[in-house]
């Protein structure tokens, strides 16, 4: 039995811990994972491996920024994986036909934004369930990708475009810089602009936000449009890395992105999102996959492991909110 004083002391300690856990829980988990891997996984801490790790999360990282907004406002977007593939294929085709990198990039970005805009109009203006809407557009856009490429990878002949995926600055590949830029831009949007706060208010209580003068429909459409734009951008970067637009790339990417956001404490019912935690969520996903590769764990087991990690993170979160 403990004396009253030690009880009080321990409760102060625990409240300090819970506060730290609340604000930086996933960052702590990330730090612990990183430390563990550094100590016990051979080659983990090599420059080449860390560069590869960062590169491997760049696509998920960029898209998780806008997915965070989508979830914060209480919606879903399942179409992002298809948009990534379609944007790569479309960009490659346009570049090959016109010989212009700028035209290819513009076409892909415009198409991605248009798909996002349509998703947004269906969800926000017409009131169709976001899951259904984007489940439909996921399949439609995937199909468009296959149609545009006749089901085959489209090799890009404009060599200047490859710089997008394969140059580096200060030893860090360009796609990683672009991902960091996305995190900064959307972090600022979330925390320092009326757009971010309104998105959170909509996710928290749509009706109250509407009555408080928040333009709910407009903001939701904008979020979906940004989501399409960023997914298309990520698709272009990916195609530059692969030097081709591939219609069957990024299958299931949408679920990985949503998993990363959930790991980062974004509430699926909306209203709660923190950019730092989303960065941690993305890195945890990439880090675990990377470590499993280094440990030669067969890919079939990796699926199982990823699912378990997601469940674990959600249980931690439940535990947190029940206190």
């Amino acid at each position: 039995m403990s004396s009253p004083t030690s009880l009080a002391a321990s409760s102060i300690q625990s409240s300090r811990f819970t506060r730290l856990w609340d604000s930086a829980g996933m960052l702590l988990v990330l730090a612990a994972l990183f430390l563990t891997c550094s100590l016990f996984v051979d080659n983990f801490l090599s420059v080449a491996n860390l560069r590869g790790l960062a590169l491997s999360v760049s696509t998920i990282g960029m898209i998780s920024c806008t997915m965070m907004f989508c979830l914060a406002a209480g919606d879903f977007d399942l179409s992002v994986g298809s948009v990534v593939a379609f944007a790569g294929v479309l960009g490659a085709t346009v570049m090959n036909t016109t010989g212009s990198v700028a035209l290819g990039v513009a076409a892909a970005l415009a198409a991605g934004s248009m798909i996002g805009l349509l998703n947004g109009v269906f969800v926000a203006r017409l009131g169709v369930n976001a899951l259904i809407t984007t489940l439909a557009s996921m399949q439609i856009v995937r199909g468009l990708g296959f149609i545009a490429s006749d089901g085959r990878a489209v090799g890009i002949r404009t060599a200047g475009f490859f710089d997008f995926g394969n140059t580096a600055w200060l030893g860090v590949p360009l796609p990683v810089w672009l991902t960091i830029a996305c995190f900064v831009i959307f972090g600022v949007l979330l925390n320092l602009t009326i757009f971010g706060r309104n998105a959170l208010a909509i996710g928290g209580n749509k009706e109250a936000a509407h009555l408080a003068g928040v333009p709910v429909v407009r903001i939701k459409i904008l979020i979906f449009t940004l989501q399409g734009l960023v997914a298309a951008f990520a698709g272009l970067v990916l195609s530059a890395r692969m030097t081709s637009g591939q219609p069957n790339t990024s299958l299931g990417l949408e679920l990985e992105v949503i998993s990363a956001c959930v790991l980062g404490g974004v509430s699926l019912s909306g209203g709660v999102a923190r950019i730092g935690a989303v960065v941690a969520g993305v890195l945890i996903m990439g880090l675990v996959q990377n470590a499993m590769n280094l440990l030669n764990i067969p890919p079939f087991y990796q699926y199982v492991a990823r699912g378990l990690i997601l469940l674990g993170a959600v249980m931690l979160d439940r535990f947190k909110s029940r206190r």
């Binding site: 959170l200 208010a201 928290g204 209580n205 009706e207 109250a208 936000a209 009555l211 509430s267 209203g271 709660v272």
Partner: peptide
């Protein structure tokens, strides 16, 4: 509750 406050903010 339904139309006034955003409870989780």
């Amino acid at each position: 509750k339904k139309e006034g406050i955003v409870a989780i903010r």
